[in-house]
């Protein structure tokens, strides 16, 4: 059976005099390389010129604050559970009196670390988050000289109050509706009625 039409019959016939001179072949090769002198290189000079990226590009994470500037994360751990690369670790803290402007709810993440070398940027943490706290953005993770510098803490992850990061592209109505689907595990777990029998925050 013939799979391709690239089949060539090999022959060991003797080289002709012109072939043995090699000069015509060399000239041919040199014309080929010279023709590349006049081609435009496809290089994109990176820092000055950036290639367009997908609107839903999944880059470095951000921990969002709410409209009052309080952190949305409640340290529930859903993101860490969802993470297939086990890149997320966190410890929880309890909000004290007078810290209401810092943390939206009574429980918050005292530390929150993502190992950017383990992270595969799948976006499952974002999907799992019931509090709309973690999002992937279009920023690139910087290069570092040391391994430990790739473990990003809250200092790098939480958005700055004066430099908010727009995630509306990733937080569309369709996404919000999807998160409220009854079949989703975190919706079941965090259904307040099921957990705390009528208790309301």
């Amino acid at each position: 059976m013939q799979l391709t039409n690239r089949k060539v019959v090999v022959s060991n016939k003797e080289q002709s005099f012109a072939e043995r001179l090699y000069l015509p072949a060399i000239a041919k090769g040199m014309i080929i390389t010279a023709s590349h002198l006049f081609k435009k290189p496809p290089t994109i000079m990176y820092p000055e010129k950036k290639r367009p990226i997908a609107p839903v590009y999944r880059g470095q994470h951000v921990l969002k604050r709410d409209e009052n500037g309080a952190e949305r994360c409640t340290s529930c751990g859903m993101c860490a559970v969802a993470c297939p690369a086990e890149a997320i670790t966190m410890t929880s803290g309890e909000r004290k009196k007078g810290e209401e402007h810092l943390y939206r709810e009574e429980k918050y993440a005292a530390t929150y670390e993502i190992d950017m070398l383990r992270c595969i940027f799948c976006g499952l943490c974002e999907e799992a988050c019931p509090k709309e706290a973690i999002f992937l953005t279009d920023r690139l993770v910087d290069a570092q000289f040391e391994r430990k510098d790739f473990i990003y803490g809250k200092d790098k992850l939480v958005e700055k109050i004066d430099a908010r990061i727009d995630v509306t592209k990733r937080q569309t109505q369709a996404v919000l509706d999807f998160k409220k689907l009854p079949g989703l595990k975190h919706n079941e777990l965090f259904d307040a009625k099921k957990l705390n029998k009528g208790h309301k925050h």
Binding site: T33, A34, H36, L37, K39, P41, P42, T43, M45
Partner: peptide, 11 residues
């Protein structure tokens, strides 16, 4: 070399 190989070379 860069021009022959469709690159830009040191710039």
């Amino acid at each position: 070399a860069a021009f022959l190989q469709d690159r830009k070379g040191p710039s």
